[in-house]
Design a protein around this nucleic acid. Structure first.
Lengths: 200, 200
DNA sequence: GCAATAATCTTGACAGTGTCAAAATAAGCC
DNA sequence: GGCTTATTTTGACACTGTCAAGATTATTGC
């Protein structure tokens, strides 16, 4: 197939992203070193630096991709009429998203990027966008069913925190184990739905 | 004061823990290197290895200390009669605990220990204990006020996830900012309290 | 008190990391 | 074809965790 070692790779940028995702899955966020990545791409240690300013930029690119997927998922799951079943289903999908690629989820929300490194403008944009997307769609799902003194934005923030916290506890292997997760997520949805006015 | 450079430090173990906590606060979990730590303690690079098997063991010791504090705080805040005010106050205290020493909180619940490294038996014990403590105390606070089909353990898990998720989003600097936090935490408590039977 | 043992600490070394500078190579353009 | 620009490479530096072997002190047995 590919010629055996041309000087110019030809498609390094996307190859790096692809292999980086694989490495992330396999070796985790710490196991992802630029040198290993370069080797996998069949290229010298410093070659990646001409496609990403530094490691942080690479990670931000990965996270940005992932947020796009998440945003798409949110749009797909939270459309149409709101119901407890639909929200329960969304939560299940969210948990699946997080647990199927835990290292990716960690990268998206973890401190590696947001604290230690510095999130790209592009990443911040898509991250905030996906939250706004969630808030709006959840808001319209609960349309007219919230008590008057309840701000839909607060419900969105609190419920996201709940699901996010669930994912973190689950992914990091603390407290909540896989057998409980279904019951806990149901309970969480119950909490969210309980915020509704005593039914319409 | 201290003699200027004896061969035997005399109190290295506790000095290491103390300085490690300072380093954690100042430079974060990544900035905490054993070499810097050794230098601060006025000792050679490998001296700490005679007191902690490896870096993971040191971090586990720090986390264990922190969980003890948290456990103590839980016992202090969640005693006596249950009320919305008391729970709201607990949540505020929890948020304060997490945000005043974010790096410590990250260490306690983050993947550095639970995923990448391996939690000590001692750490696991105190971590689980503090959750059980929380679950029991919250359970007795909500005693007799929960619907019959609602498992108090699930409520404990779900509510912990909510508060934990809030802390993570806040600490890592995503979505929730400091100004919103009070309102969001109130909303979260509202969600938790909404699980109660339509009042007693 | 003194020798043997154990605890503690040091120096040297190794493999691994991210990243910079300077040189080499290839591609694209006029 | 020659110039410019985009890629890629080699070499180097400072930093990391950790192991092995030796130096030093404390502790124990007699």
């Amino acid at each position: 197939m590919s010629r055996p070692a041309r000087y110019h790779h030809g498609d390094l940028h996307s190859t790096l992203l692809r292999e980086a995702n694989r490495l992330l899955d396999e070796d985790g966020i710490d196991g992802l070193s630029l040198r290993k990545l370069a080797e996998r791409a069949g290229v010298s240690r410093t070659a990646p630096y001409h496609h990403f300013r530094d490691k942080n930029a690479l990670l931000c690119a990965l996270a940005t991709q992932a947020f796009s997927q998440l945003d798409e998922m949110i749009g797909r799951q939270l459309q149409g009429e709101g119901s407890k079943e639909r929200i329960q289903h969304f939560v299940r999908e969210y948990l699946r998203f997080a647990t199927e690629h835990p290292e990716q989820y960690e990268l998206m929300f973890g401190r590696t990027i947001w604290k230690s490194g510095a999130p790209t403008e592009e990443l911040k944009a898509v991250a905030y966008r996906s939250f706004r997307n969630y808030a709006e769609r959840l808001g319209s799902q609960l349309q007219g069913r919230l008590p008057a003194d309840t701000d839909p934005l607060r419900v969105a923030q609190a419920s996201w925190a709940t699901v996010h916290g669930l994912c973190r506890l689950l992914i990091d292997g603390i407290y909540v184990n896989r057998e409980d997760i279904e019951a806990v997520s149901e309970q969480s949805v119950a909490l969210i739905m309980a915020a509704l006015a005593p039914s319409a």
